[in-house]
Write a protein that binds this DNA or RNA. Structure first.
Lengths: 110, 110
DNA sequence: GCAACACTCAAGTCTTCACTTGACAATCAA
DNA sequence: TTGATTGTCAAGTGAAGACTTGAGTGTTGC
């Protein structure tokens, strides 16, 4: 099970797919196995496993195998990577906005 | 110019593409026109415009045309949608985590 | 007016990727 | 041991979408 790195790029790509988002929504409620996740999604077990690999490879979930079942649970590292990316863009935007406001508020004595 | 709605689904799909993320990075520094954005991206102007349409349709940027040039700037609505989605998942996860901690910390007198 | 510019639109190509199928491995339970 | 369960692997298919090309529209400046 390769665990490359939770970069924002990988995370956003992972979050772009509706099936994967549905899996994450389900896992916010409780950990689950692949065979538990598949039925409500109307896809094959094999497809679910592929999605789980994507999610795990970018740090959004962790899974551990005991016996023949693989239990998956949310992992916040991937979420943090995405949040940081967004927050950085947002703060840069707000900073520029503030500077603009300052400029506009300055008394026009120039 | 259709402006459907900044849903998290649309935003994550938009953020999943590296070229679009590069455009957003560029726009955090300053507003820009399509022809200004294209050269460093090594794609056609037409491709850039397609990306801009995607970004605008999910609320990540706004653009206004004056004369023959279309100026694009970041717009925080789309970012907020994505942030809210992540925050909701994260808080649900943390709440469950807290309950688990409570359970484990409870004196084992049962 | 005319040429250069900035963008728009409509096909069409080509790659990526979500999904399925079918075979296989490992584990559990009777 | 045997059969059912759970997951893994390897192709292969089909659709979505990123990108290009080429033609066209409106704008600016000479």
């Amino acid at each position: 099970m390769p665990r490359p790195k939770p970069t924002a790029a990988r995370v956003f790509h992972a979050l772009g797919d509706p099936t994967r988002r549905a899996i994450l929504e389900r896992l916010t409620r409780a950990p689950a196995s692949a065979s538990q996740l598949a039925p409500p999604l109307a896809v094959t077990l094999a497809a679910v496993v592929q999605h789980l690999n994507v999610l795990e490879s970018c740090g959004l979930i962790r899974s551990e195998k005991s016996g023949r079942t693989r239990t998956c649970r949310l992992h916040p590292a991937g979420f943090a990577a995405a949040e940081h990316w967004i927050a950085a863009r947002r703060s840069a935007w707000e900073e520029r906005f503030d500077r603009l406001g300052e400029l506009l508020a300055r008394p026009e004595d120039a």
